[in-house]
């Protein structure tokens, strides 16, 4: 423990979170009541509740916090925000932390929510619109061909239903529609990223 001691319970990581994580400046306002932990529908499945994450941030547990998969499980139900007696924007902080961990490459590998998020982002950015069919298939086949076929078969009833209801167009598989100025979008996103990086002091 001794090597770790000087790092612990210093405000360094808290400051980092305040500066670089969306709504991170709220973390210090938590009074550890635990109502967020109890309010979360995913609570029992998490390793760390928001309240515990906040305490870990204060305790300087950088690697454990950023490597935690807890933030990735937030479904944005907003129960915690509604009940938090200190009005912390907990949902936003959790997403901010996830984003930050991802940016630093510290987020847990193979975490399904994170994988989905990446898939969704790439899918969306590519043509400026979400291609639901490709996104779905990408998700089905992310663990290999056999697993993909199995999942696809299991979901076929739903797929057919959606097709009949004109919610899915099989033609989307081939190219799919796009926005007019994809290049422009890419430029916007690049600029936004640059601004964010500058503001939050990311170097990479």
């Amino acid at each position: 423990m001794s090597a770790q001691v000087p790092e612990r319970y210093r405000n360094d990581f808290l400051r980092e979170v305040e500066e670089r994580v969306e709504e991170g400046r709220w973390v210090k306002m938590c009074m550890q009541c635990g109502v967020c932990a109890g309010s979360c529908p995913f609570g029992p499945h998490w390793e760390h509740s928001p309240q515990k994450i906040f305490m870990m941030i204060r305790a300087g547990k950088r690697a454990e916090v950023l490597g935690s998969d807890s933030m990735w499980m937030c479904t944005s139900c907003y129960n915690c925000i509604v009940r938090c007696p200190r009005k912390l924007p907990i949902t936003h902080i959790m997403h901010g932390l996830a984003n930050y961990a991802h940016r630093l490459g510290l987020a847990p590998k193979g975490q399904p929510t994170r994988e989905f998020a990446r898939l969704f982002w790439d899918n969306c950015i590519k043509q400026g619109r979400a291609n639901e069919l490709k996104l779905t298939l990408g998700l089905y086949f992310k663990d290999g061909l056999a697993a993909g076929i199995k999942t696809a078969l299991a979901m076929k009833g739903i797929g057919l239903g959606m097709f009949k209801a004109k919610r899915i167009n099989p033609m989307e598989l081939f190219g799919g529609h796009r926005i007019k100025d994809v290049k422009g979008l890419h430029a916007i996103i690049a600029k936004a990223r640059e601004i964010e990086d500058r503001r939050k002091g990311y170097t990479s």
Partner: peptide, 8 residues
Amino acid sequence: HGVDTEGY
């Protein structure tokens, strides 16, 4: 329903 924060 809730969480005991001492030890979670």
